[in-house]
Design a protein around this nucleic acid. Sequence first.
DNA 1: CTGAAAGCGCTAACAT
DNA 2: ATGTTAGCGCTTTCAG
Lengths: 333, 333
Amino acid sequence: MNRAKITLADIAETAGVSPATVSRVLNGDPRVSPERVTRVNEAISELGYSPNRAARTLVTGKTGLIAAVIDSNLNVFSDPFWGQITTGISQALQEANFQALLMVRPLDVEDPSVVASLAPGQVDGAIFFQLHNDDTVNLLQDMGLPLVVVGRPEESSKLTYVDSDNFGGAHQATKHLIDRGCKAIATVAGDQQLSSGRLRLDGYRKALAESGIGFDESRVAYGDWTDVGGEQAMRTLIESNPSIDGVFVANDLMALGAMSVLEEQGRNIPEDVAVVGFDNMFAGRLGRQQLTTIEQDVQGLGAKAAAMVIRMIDGERPKSVVLPTRLIVRDTA
Amino acid sequence: MNRAKITLADIAETAGVSPATVSRVLNGDPRVSPERVTRVNEAISELGYSPNRAARTLVTGKTGLIAAVIDSNLNVFSDPFWGQITTGISQALQEANFQALLMVRPLDVEDPSVVASLAPGQVDGAIFFQLHNDDTVNLLQDMGLPLVVVGRPEESSKLTYVDSDNFGGAHQATKHLIDRGCKAIATVAGDQQLSSGRLRLDGYRKALAESGIGFDESRVAYGDWTDVGGEQAMRTLIESNPSIDGVFVANDLMALGAMSVLEEQGRNIPEDVAVVGFDNMFAGRLGRQQLTTIEQDVQGLGAKAAAMVIRMIDGERPKSVVLPTRLIVRDTA
DNA sequence: CTGAAAGCGCTAACAT
DNA sequence: ATGTTAGCGCTTTCAG
């Protein structure tokens, strides 16, 4: 067990070469004689050496660190995606020899501590999650920090982002209802303050328009993404539109709520009313009836975000990306 | 927008003092005249300076970094706790001015890259999750890395850990069934390879013994923590013990599976058979009947682990900790 | 292809 | 109470 820290100088000595040569071997500089490369590598594995990141950082100016910043005001607890996204990020970074720095911080106000932690020289880049407020992020970007946002920032924003195709997914979902013969299709929409809420409603609308069914405002009810919100919205819908035979619900949690109302009203799913959700959350697979839904590639979101910051660090200017979603047909539609 | 990096030397110059003095102010050294402290602080905020971590690390030998390492072989995706735990860790570390380094890596074999990333000098400490294999962790500990494990390691292990009180929780759950009058109490136990599986079974046993009911091996069925596993176990149980009036299921997911079997068999919950789960997972609150269960303080687990590594870094030797659980009575028992 | 030497930005003796 | 100075471990000119 090598407690004592061995340095590059130690390697140089036991290999009988100069520190510069060792450094070259470490960094894959081609102009070192093969013979010395072997000697150095032997010394390295013999002594169990690994380079000191801090020293390297100090001279190169690159930290090898990319921050993953999540707004602590978000309800992380109820977000089952968090684990998958961070896994995606961590693994993608790892492959590019970067390390992920995890920061859970309040981002609603301009937090000086966040800014200080991410100031030039502290990290090489950053990935931000679903922000409600762009200010801190914009400031950091102006300071020259390479960064990408997971989720969609304000329309006017110049931030680079990765997001799931909320519009396309909603379109797929609604199209599926149309294809299976539904005529009176309603929707439980999500919070319209969020881009995901707006885009999912737009996708529903578009699919309807394409099929010539046309959009009817009375067939739209709004929920707050929770199961209870889904129940309430469904009740409203059924009262005003007793004839509906299909519902696209903007997320699975609300869909579960909506389904319980439908059952309570004695409607058979999917015979009387077909239901499609969005997210492919785990709980949707649990009930007696498995929920037909739209799956997002959550881990891919993280991996893509990581790949993009890395490209930005390399000086490129990658375009924002929208990842495709997938319809998963199960019992409810 | 201060793009150019300002250094401690710049501060020294504009404040008209020596670099050493600036450093002292930065580190809160009391023996600097108040007047100069102000002057330095003014210069700092004026120039928007923040110290370079790498340089500091290089000289102090402390990185300010603590790694959170999770075995990528674990099914992170299905683990709803991951987000909460990391949140707990990140916030606790943040308060102590440490940063969390997130590593998702295979830990089943001795991975040299993990060891290299965590070698002395790379991080100040580490937190490991639910490992199936202690080898890498033990190696690192022998190398002098302060570390704590979340979850319980092998009995013989000398590792410091934080874990939920699986035994106590199971005891509470079973006790609750007894208290509400159940006479024939079965259990769907979890994987006995895992300490959590064993401890939850032990807790059930203990509660039974205390109340004089006695343990009956035929009232134990084993599941694999999944809903399907819960269904199968419940079927076995009902067949061999048609008279049971209460079940403690070792986790909520299996409990959900068990409940569906009970309903299918026409047993009313909780009148005919009362059910208590474990974990307080979100999905347990969704169905028509909300699951009575045992809650673990998941975020606390993370926070505690963080606090403990920090103490170890400070040279203390904190004892392993078992966090209390809480019974949440809802509809099913 | 290789080595010598000069720092990167900071802290910590050591002086004063 | 304050300044001077010597590195921390590494990379990178610059010579050869």
